[in-house]
Computed example of a mutant assay.
Amino acid sequence: MRITPIIETYFLEADIDISDWDALCDAATDFKSTYDVPMNTIQYEDTALMPRIEDTPIVKEMVDNILQTVGQATSYPLELYELWGCKKQYKQSMMFHSHWDPKIHNHANLSFAFYAQADERNGNLVFPMHIYNCFIERKFTPGRGKLVVFPSWLFHYTEHEDNPEAPDRIVISGNLKVSE
């Protein structure tokens, strides 16, 4: 397992292995058939998977691995607060958003994106930041097993899937909060 914390810019990046990638991809996407809308129109508020998939062994394995990895880089205990899956296909992307909303007293402290299926041909995860008069853009190239952890308040988006040869990007994202 490789862990690269980048404290100066608020990110943690790690590679995590899962015992059954196909089962994890299925867990992240099969629930969408219960919604009466096309998959690419389902947004953050509509995609909460907890507890729908957490009880499956492969999702529990993934969550345990993520909590263990993040726990090695933080000095406080964290627990899973929310979990959802997202599948993006050719010509799709994820809109500009954050995972924190002060109006609803969101308890999320850290958020993550975990790539169950993706490679370097897929669109990047992008964090545009303005710090004083400087514009900084941090991009993460997708890859199966890549975990990207960031503060929940940090805005981000994904680039369009513009390569027809790229696999569908399947990401399981979630929010973590400090354990009480």
Rank of each mutant, 00 (worst) to 15 (best):
R2W: 11
I3L: 11
I3W: 04
T4V: 11
I7K: 15
I7N: 15
T9P: 04
Y10R: 11
E13V: 08
D20T: 05
W21H: 09
L24V: 02
C25V: 07
D26P: 01
D26H: 13
A28K: 02
K32H: 10
T47F: 05
M50R: 09
M50Q: 12
E54N: 14
D55M: 10
M62I: 11
V63G: 08
V70N: 06
G71P: 11
A73S: 15
Y76E: 15
Y76M: 13
E79M: 15
E79K: 14
E82W: 09
E82L: 13
G85N: 03
Q92S: 01
M95C: 10
W100G: 00
D101V: 05
P102Y: 05
I104P: 02
N106F: 05
A113C: 09
Y115N: 12
D119R: 10
G123P: 03
G123W: 01
N133G: 14
I136P: 00
R138D: 12
K139V: 08
K146D: 03
L147A: 03
V148Y: 06
V149Q: 03
F150C: 06
P151Y: 07
S152M: 12
F155M: 10
H156Y: 07
T158C: 05
E159V: 04
H160D: 07
E161S: 04
P164L: 05
E165H: 07
R169V: 04
R169T: 10
L176R: 05
